[in-house]
Amino acid sequence: MKTFRIILWSAVGLAVVVVLALFWTTSQQRSSTAQTGLLSNPIPLEQPGDGASSGNRPMNGSPFSLIEANGEPITEAAFAGRPTVLFFGFTYCPEICPVSLYMLSTLIDDLGDERGDLQAFFISVDPERDTPEVVQSYISPFAHNIRGITGDLASIEALAASWGIFVEKVPLDDGDYTVDHGASILLLDRQGRFRGAFDHRDNPVIASEKLKLILAL
């Protein structure tokens, strides 16, 4: 019986230590969130039934070193301090990419003065064909709202993967290729953290509300 009691109390003691450790960790996370004045829920903008699934999307993307469509180098530093919208696509995309860019640009136009310092980027998942010049030309109707990014394939694949965006170059029978890619439009807060997503299938009214929410964060 004595041995049993010792084991029992040791187990209770261990459980208390574990609970205290968990509590301490959680409260540390809460206070760091509170200091930056952000909501504790990492994905506050998602609505049930959204086309753009964001279930397991990482909160932070990886650092990167790429080329902006205007020829200038660009890094993750460009995302800091401003609410940022990211969309991955390519110029061999006849429907989803132009429609998504048009939708995004129109939503930003419609924000009017509420637009604030919101910025948006189109990142090519086909940098081998999409040179900076090609990307710049492709986004030219939306250039007042959306900037282009391209670079080397490995870096772009790493960046896309870090945001949970699927990218896969698929060879076709005729020697050509296509690129399967995630079509979610990602919304980042001023700290460059993922806060929500929508895509071209979503109701523009809901998408617009989501844009306003990252502006308000």
Binding site: G51, A52, S53, C93, P94, E95, I96, F166, L172, D173, D174, T178, D180, H181, G182, A183, S184, A197, D199, R201
Partner: peptide
């Protein structure tokens, strides 16, 4: 002629053979 499908949020486009 291409098919286009969305698998979750991924755009998949293929020529029709």
């Amino acid at each position: 002629v291409h098919t286009m499908t969305m698998k979750d949020d991924v755009v998949v486009m293929r020529p029709v053979e």
